[in-house]
């Protein structure tokens, strides 16, 4: 499994990662080698094997729908790069 530079750029786009053009060949090489390692899986017949998502199988717990947390908006927003009147600011999305 070998990834072309364009495939690397597309994966980086899907992952919302800015990657410098000069770094694309190294990423292509490393990712290809990792995928080659991973491809050893394809030699195994897993027909009928139930996928295991989690070591402890069982459903999610439910709890009563009660308020258990206090509002800590200010404490949390102090961490944000940019806020205004309780809102998180990002560049304009809609013209």
């Amino acid at each position: 499994m070998s990834l072309a530079p364009d495939e690397v750029r597309n994966i980086a786009h899907l992952a919302r990662l800015a990657i410098g053009d000069e770094d694309v060949p190294a990423h292509a090489d490393n990712l290809s080698r990792i995928l080659e390692l991973v491809d050893q899986m394809q030699q195994v017949d897993t027909k009928g094997v139930e996928p295991m998502a989690h070591p402890l199988e069982g459903g999610q717990r439910l709890r009563p729908d009660e308020v258990i947390e206090e509002d800590q908006r200010e404490a949390f927003q102090k961490l944000a790069p940019q806020t205004e009147v309780g809102l998180y600011l990002v560049p304009k999305v809609i013209e």
Binding site: A12, L14, H27, L35, V38, E50, A53
Partner: peptide, 26 residues
């Protein structure tokens, strides 16, 4: 992040993520 994104992307999910979960069971 890129390996994970690739493994979960459309068309590759069964070959990678599902396969890995089956091997996890083995």
């Amino acid at each position: 992040i890129m390996i994970g994104t690739y493994a979960l992307s459309a068309g590759y999910f069964d070959a990678y993520y599902l396969k890995a979960q089956q091997i996890r069971r083995l």
